[in-house]
Design a protein around this nucleic acid. Structure first.
Lengths: 118, 118
DNA sequence: CTGATGATTAGATGATTGTCAAGATAGAAA
DNA sequence: TTTCTATCTTGACAATCATCTAATCATCAG
């Protein structure tokens, strides 16, 4: 406490205004890392923008890489906790988990210096 | 034209509801990648939470790695466009650039499946 | 069961990354 | 100038990563 620099206002919320410890930073860093690849970011975008918020792997096309590589990237996103997959018959459907992304977005807001307020 | 990713607005909203192209995804991916390392995320946190929103390199301590390594990570953050450094006399001060982080946060909101929409 | 299709896993390889030691650069002080 | 301090750059190395091919798993249709 004591450290609450005048809050953001601008947008949102109860912001962490202290340096994050190495432990606090580990999981979000893994998530950001998962987002730090053009193919993976595009996959996420394709899944979340798809009808019903889920997409069959067979619809995740248009890349220059092979199927197994797509599979690998989906696994990275999955292990980071950003998406989940479910098999329904022949096909496997992926959907984006909303919670983690919200957490990351809040973390970024928290990193904003409280500029321009006054 | 046409594709202007209009930003934030309140909270969740005029969301890009189309899959992002590889080109649109390249720069944000570079930024997420820069955030995808525990040391760099902690550095960002230390800088933004520091008084006046800026911190001297000499204050960015408490890591297990050497000076040059810190310098390397600062360079990655700088080249990703997330921070900027300025020399004032003997010391170099870094500060977090608010714009890019806002853009990334908005992008994450955009990736949220539009749950709860009535 | 056999064959066909969708998706993941295993193993190999070239590229990228994180790290350090050593040298270089910028400014302040003597 | 020279010296000292603060920070960055270079060069090298091991570890990690993205990608491929080939093999395997899961499901459905005969």
């Amino acid at each position: 406490m004591s450290k609450q620099a005048d809050l953001p206002l601008g947008c949102c919320s109860p912001v962490v205004r202290e340096p994050l410890s190495i432990d606090e930073v580990r999981r979000p860093a893994q998530m950001f890392k998962a987002l730090g690849d053009p193919i993976r970011l595009r996959l996420l975008s394709m899944i979340s923008s798809h009808e019903d918020g889920e997409a069959c792997v067979c619809e995740l096309t248009g890349f220059t890489v092979t199927g197994p590589t797509i599979s690998h990237h989906l696994k990275v996103l999955r292990e980071a906790g950003l998406i989940e997959g479910e098999r329904r018959g022949t096909w496997i459907y992926y959907r984006v988990l909303p919670g983690p992304l919200t957490t990351l977005a809040a973390l970024l807001h928290a990193q904003q210096p409280a500029t321009v307020m006054a």
